[in-house]
Write a protein that binds this DNA or RNA. Sequence first.
RNA 1: GCGGAUGUGGCGGAAUUGGCAGACGCGCUAGACUUAGGAUCUAGUGUCCACGACGUGAAGGUUCGAGUCCUUUCAUCCGCACCA
Length: 802
Amino acid sequence: MSFNYKKIEKKWQKIWDDKELFKAVDFSDKPKFYGLVEFPYPSGVGLHVGHVRAYTSLEVISRKRRLEGYNVLFPIGWDAFGLPTENYAIQTGTHPRIVTDENIKVFTSQLKEIGYSFDWDRTVDTTDANYYKWTQWIFLKLFDNGLAYKNKTYVNFCNDCRVVLANEESQNGKCDRCGSDVVQMEKDVWFLKIREYAEKLLNGLDTVDFLPRIRLEQENWIGKSTGAEVDFDIQGMDEKLTVFTTRPDTLYGVTFMVVAPEHPLIENHKDMIENLQEVKDYQEQAKKKTEFERVQLAKDKSGVEIKGIKIKNPVSGELVPLWIADYVMMGYGTGAIMAVPGHDTRDWEFARKFGIPIVEVISGGNVQEEAYTDIEKGMIVNSEIINGLNVNEAKEKMMDYLEEKKLGKKTTNYKMKDWAFNRQRYWGEPIPVIHCEECGIVGVPEKDLPVRLPEVKNYKPTDTGESPLALIEEWVKTTCPKCGGAAKRETDTMPQWAGSSWYFLRYIDPDNNLEFADMEKLKYWLQVDWYNGGMEHVTRHLLYSRFWHRFLFDLGYVPAAEPYAKRTAQGLILGADGEKMSKSRGNVVNPRDIIEEHGADTLRTYIMFIGDYEKPAPWSDNGVKGCRRFLERVWKLKDIVVEGDAIEKDNEVLMNRTIKKVTDDYENLKFNTAIAAMMTMINEFNAKGKINKKEFSIFLLLLNPIAPHITEELWEIKDLGGVLHEHSWPEFDERKTIEDIIEMAVQVNGKVRGKITLPLESTKETAYEAAMQDEGIKAHLSGKTIVKEVFVPGRIYNIVVK
RNA sequence: GCGGAUGUGGCGGAAUUGGCAGACGCGCUAGACUUAGGAUCUAGUGUCCACGACGUGAAGGUUCGAGUCCUUUCAUCCGCACCA
């Protein structure tokens, strides 16, 4: 009775493969569609159901597009550099290359057995030298254009993983990967100047169609704020102390100044500082704190007054003390602030703790009780030149005044930090530069790319935080491309974000050995029409790849400023217990098991039916069975198929509505309701006991993107003409989606008291006549007076009585 | 702390955007078929003092009419986190 999914799925996968059905054709005359899903990291544990949810959405869209006559590029590849593989190599001594190749093999077969319509000829692998050659090439372009630089900083070092972590990877002082404590280590590392692209990355958001929450997270990450840099005189010196403020309107409320512990002013003027030892102790103490401690102990403000230095308020001329405190960060703004305790909570806490005066410059609150931070209602007071203005007016006026008097200037700041572009590990792209004693840092010439990873015996990073590459002398030792003298290779490698920052470009021309991709092909395929991936990648990966793309655009290497026209994100699939799937909880579902027991079509259908695509949804084995039953019912429909090459009259509305609903719902990622509509449709046909060939073929086409194997098979069995995939997506007639005889609810005082049947285009009078035939409605009207009637044609008839 | 989102049956979730709340699926109940049922089919399934009333986290409000709009409030989740 049950359909033989194993046989059917294998059969059609082979047919598609043999016919090269999913090959994207460069320069085809058809309209193009480029659908992109985040390529997986081929880990040893294999594909999980989250991948299936992430990929099936655009799989459905891609299959639909092909039926709609598009030339579709739907590629897949491997983001294969990364720590788990390397850690495995360290443990077992197996070369990461071997591990990676094996994992890729597993992933490939798993993706293939789901029946995805990827163009397998365009697969890219970030760890392939033919690929990372171009990752290195892009890096060199960045380097040549002054966007890559090396800088000494304190970096987060994980003693366990023995790696330097990007700020983003050390959450709350714990290593993102292993959870152990992060310590601070001074290192000279590579950065990319993504900050220089902050404005472009922000503005670019206006030109693309990203989900609002994705756009918002990008904006928050960039963290633009506008304000002014104000120069404060340091008493008895020519030098000025420049601060950044978003609230120049509160300038008269400044009662002290604060510099970050790392601020150069201290070193530069230590001879003036009366309590130098105390200040130095504080600096030491601040340095020792990890970022975690600095943030965690935020509530408890600390600081030391720098005695001997007074700062002069540029507008009031008042002298105020200078403090050093670690609630001010060297990495943001100028590393120094003007403190306005009356109207800034942090400054207020600090002033309260150290007994610094609090002055009110905006009326409306009680600044002795708490900082008054409202910017809507307050009025400026005690501020000579701006008294009586509201906050916004005062800001403008003050900034104009500062600029006019050359005391400061309007400035924009960004929270986003430069991209820490380094890893002290083996399994990553070598950063293609050479250190020469004579010439400094020199880029590897293009002709010498790729800089290949050498064979090593030991993948363990060194205790000094250097990568294992540093231990391979014959690799490190090289000659300077400029002067020919002895030189050393850079031993840092790139972070995993590197390869994924441009992979969508390589799909367009994966085998090109002369360029990363041919310009004509790029012009044909770009932009990516639709990019779907996880919410967890919508800040970093999305920004980094947009940054690289925008940079390449500025250099004329790609034809579009923004890489992705549209970006969506799927929700997480949780375990049956509603918790995040994890090995330790034992709630992990392996897609392979579902395919084995129910087939790929059931897996795909269930994962699309599981719930709102964008929200998290718990796994349900019974839900899987429900979808299996649905497909079984679909299979059995073939027994009630009758002849007929047009939709039966009494099925017209049902059919047209379903076509419309499914068509729209797929486009809006509402797969769950699309499937529900198809379920409703076959329930109707089952109730009627027959479905004609035309109706059946339409149904199969609608379901095909979700369940491609069973629909192709049924098409063939019922001999519906050629093969399904050569047909076109069904069209609907808007006029036929509406019944001309409708059932309308009749309300009395807003409560439904009965239903009437009447032609769609009826008047209130007709409705009244019909309603009077209904005993139930009449009963509710008897003895009352009608005071009002609301009649909305086609919708509702409400009679208000007294 | 700031920003965002979400709260609807026993469960996952629908609701043409102000017009019959609970589509569709799961689960459950009863029946049919069967040697058997964790298969299949049929019917039912929001709650309750059931010809009625009450029901979309809670409390108010606007409206002929509110899950949908407004105000207040509670809870959960996510992002950022001393960003000046």
